[in-house]
Lab assay of single mutants.
Amino acid sequence: SEEKKKAKERLERLGASSELARELLDRANGNAEKAERLLRKLL
Rank of each mutant, 00 (worst) to 15 (best):
K4D: 14
E23R: 14
R10K: 08
K6A: 12
E3W: 10
A7T: 06
E33F: 12
E9Q: 13
G15Q: 01
E36S: 05
G30Q: 06
R10W: 12
G30S: 03
L11E: 00
R22M: 14
R13E: 09
K5R: 13
L25A: 04
L11N: 00
S17H: 04
R27F: 09
L42I: 13
N31C: 04
L20N: 01
L38G: 01
K41D: 09
E3Y: 13
L38R: 04
L20T: 03
L38D: 05
A21Q: 02
R13K: 11
E12R: 11
N31I: 05
K34R: 12
E2D: 13
E9V: 07
D26A: 14
A7E: 04
R10E: 04
A32P: 09
R40V: 07
G30D: 05
R13F: 11
R10S: 05
K4E: 14
K41A: 12
R22I: 14
R10F: 08
L38I: 08
A16M: 03
L43H: 05
S1F: 12
R37K: 09
E3N: 11
R40T: 06
R37I: 10
K8T: 15
R27Y: 10
K4S: 13
A7N: 07
G30Y: 09
K4A: 14
S18C: 09
A21D: 00
R27K: 10
A21H: 01
L42V: 07
R22T: 13
A16S: 02
A32S: 08
E33Q: 13
A32I: 15
S17G: 05
L11K: 01
E2R: 09
A7S: 07
E23V: 14
L43F: 10
D26C: 14
E19M: 08
E19T: 08
K41V: 09
L24Y: 03
D26G: 07
A28I: 02
A7H: 07
R37S: 11
L20D: 01
L38Y: 07
L14P: 00
L14N: 02
L20A: 02
A7W: 10
L42G: 02
K8Y: 15
R22A: 14
E36V: 13
N31Y: 04
E9R: 10
E19K: 11
A21R: 02
D26H: 11
R13T: 07
K6Q: 12
E23M: 14
K6H: 10
L43I: 07
K34N: 08
E23K: 13
S17D: 06
L39Q: 00
L11F: 02
E19R: 11
D26M: 14
A32E: 08
L38F: 06
E19W: 10
N29F: 09
R10Q: 06
E12K: 09
A32Y: 15
A35C: 05
L14M: 11
L14S: 02
S17I: 03
E12Q: 12
E36Q: 06
K5C: 12
R22Q: 15
E36F: 08
N31T: 02
L39K: 01
A28Q: 02
A28H: 04
E36T: 06
E3V: 10
L20G: 01
K8M: 15
L43D: 02
A7R: 05
E3Q: 10
A7Y: 09
D26N: 12
L14C: 06
E2T: 10
R40F: 09
L38K: 03
E3D: 12
G15I: 03
E3C: 13
L43T: 04
L42R: 05
G30P: 00
A32V: 15
L24E: 00
L11A: 01
A28W: 05
E12C: 14
K34C: 14
L42Y: 11
L24G: 00
K4G: 13
L39F: 08
E3A: 13
A7Q: 06
E2G: 09
L43W: 10
A7K: 07
A35L: 06
K34P: 01
E3M: 10
R27N: 05
R10D: 04
E36N: 03
K4C: 13
K4T: 13
K5Q: 13
E33Y: 12
E19F: 06
L25T: 02
K5H: 09
L38Q: 05
R22W: 12
K41H: 12
K34A: 14
R13G: 07
K8F: 15
E2H: 10
L24R: 00
A32F: 15
A28D: 00
R27W: 14
K4L: 15
N29S: 08
A16W: 03
D26W: 14
K34M: 15
L25N: 00
R37F: 10
K6I: 10
K41S: 09
L11W: 04
E9C: 13
A21C: 03
L42Q: 04
E23P: 00
E23L: 15
G15M: 03
E23N: 08
N29D: 10
R22L: 15
G30H: 05
D26R: 15
E9A: 12
E23S: 10
L14W: 05
E36L: 15
K41Q: 14
N29Y: 07
G30I: 02
A7V: 08
E2V: 11
S1D: 14
L39S: 00
L25W: 05
E3R: 11
L42D: 01
K8A: 12
R22S: 12
L42H: 05
R37A: 14
E12Y: 06
R13H: 08
R27D: 04
A7L: 10
S1V: 11
E23A: 14
L24M: 05
K34F: 14
L25G: 01
E23Q: 14
G30M: 06
K34W: 15
K41P: 00
S18Q: 09
A21W: 09
S1N: 12
R27E: 07
N29G: 14
G15S: 02
L43M: 10
K5E: 12
E33M: 12
N31A: 04
E19S: 10
S1Y: 13
A32D: 04
E9I: 09
L43Y: 08
L11V: 01
K41M: 14
S18E: 11
A21V: 06
S17Y: 04
G15H: 02
R22K: 12
L39Y: 11
